[in-house]
Design a protein around this nucleic acid. Structure first.
Lengths: 235, 235
DNA sequence: CTGAAAGCGCTTACAG
DNA sequence: CTGAAAGCGCTTACAG
């Protein structure tokens, strides 16, 4: 078998055969190159480069018991707010060598549950979820399996449930306080339906600021102290 | 072992044990339920439902040789055009029982190549790609492995390369023709840099329409015959 | 209709 | 430093 043998390479086994080493050694070149003698390593690397061998993640993950993938379940990717979340999540995932599953629940609890189930099947390392209403029942499965789940844009009732969310009460307070601080006294609040938590929270914040009244009677320059600009059209 | 045994269920083996059947039978219940006797099937299904067993996709895919996942590599998810592509792709994937990897090349050929490689490792069933400039070299690997790749928003030079793209020349022609048909004679064309193919193509289409001149001297009602509205801010 | 067994392609102790 | 071997959790012919 000549060293320029380029016959079909699919396996790590084929690589081993062409390089004249055991598959364990090929695997070591891939995963712990420092444990392999330089000359052996170079030979194997040459074969890999020349044949374009790519390892099979399914086999790798099955053996290792983890997949280095995470799932993102959002209500609607078209919504700029979630698009930004998706973009940032994908960025962060990549930086850590993870791949991201994009799942669009489209407002359907059934789709949401189906996705969560599918993600568990995929053995994802973690899940980012924008829950629709109730925390879905499948969450128990994830919990039981120890799959980390982080709620996005929604605080959780459960004390042991991680979540990230904007403090919209504070946002409303900030906005109204700013207006008060520059001397405004007749303030209008335009929003969407109060059934959207974010909107109701901002109103509560605005009211709190109004109740408190202007703090100090100094004027800040116009255009300064923008507040509450976390509103990215979720309403 | 009582039938209410709920001890840790991780395996299809655990399910088999609890249900008192072989793992082959459990697999059959999952994949070809019609081949299993009703009473056996029901028993197994009961155990699966009660224990919340979820199968391991890594093992399944390794054995089956295919993953039912597809990769989407876009230049920028934040761009509304690609967001819409992502959304639609994800929808279609879900409808066919596939999961979608979201990959944001962010204008970097290196990231693009790395993603393509990662997707090959994942053994994706197919790839949707918005190429940055040149068709990347990794494409050869995909081609060699027979992984289907569809170029998005970009026609390919290679005759055997699938692609979907808007006919922007036609779009520009349509827009200019419309203006001509309603009697406009002094037409301005506002666009981005000509180095963006879409923009240059539209200009070519506009010019073609102007060269051809007004076809018929009839007026269509205002607001009719909108054309070239496929421009979703790619420039 | 059901079970036993092989095998998917890797990684990882374990010997040598 | 290297190789042989077990095993990750499934699916799928193949017997029975």
């Amino acid at each position: 078998m000549s060293t320029t043998d380029t016959s079909v390479i699919h396996d790590i086994r084929d690589v081993a055969r062409v390089a004249g080493v055991s598959i364990g050694t090929v695997s070591n070149v891939l995963n712990r190159p420092h444990m392999v003698a330089d000359t052996t390593r170079e030979r194997v690397e040459e074969v890999i480069a020349r044949t374009g061998f790519v390892r099979n993640a399914s086999a790798r993950h099955l053996r290792q018991g983890r997949t280095r993938t995470i799932g993102l379940v959002v209500q609607d990717v078209m919504n700029p707010f979630f698009t930004e979340v998706a973009r940032a999540a994908e960025d962060a995932a990549t930086d850590s060598g993870y791949l991201l599953y994009l799942c669009n629940s489209a407002g359907s609890p059934e789709k949401e549950a189906a996705y969560l189930r599918a993600l568990v099947e995929q053995q994802v390392s973690g899940v980012l979820l924008t829950p629709l209403q109730e925390i879905p029942a499948v969450m128990n499965t994830l919990r039981a399996r120890g799959t980390p789940v982080v709620l996005v844009d929604r605080a959780s009732e459960q004390p042991d449930q991680c979540s990230t969310a904007v403090d919209d009460v504070h946002g409303g307070d900030l906005a109204a306080s700013h207006l008060l601080s520059i001397g405004r006294r007749r303030i209008a609040f335009i929003s969407s339906t109060w059934s959207i938590r974010q909107c109701a929270d901002r109103r509560a914040g605005v009211r709190r600021a109004l109740r408190r009244g202007p703090a100090v009677r100094t004027r800040s320059p116009a255009g300064t102290g923008r507040a509450g600009d976390d509103d990215a059209g979720r309403g």
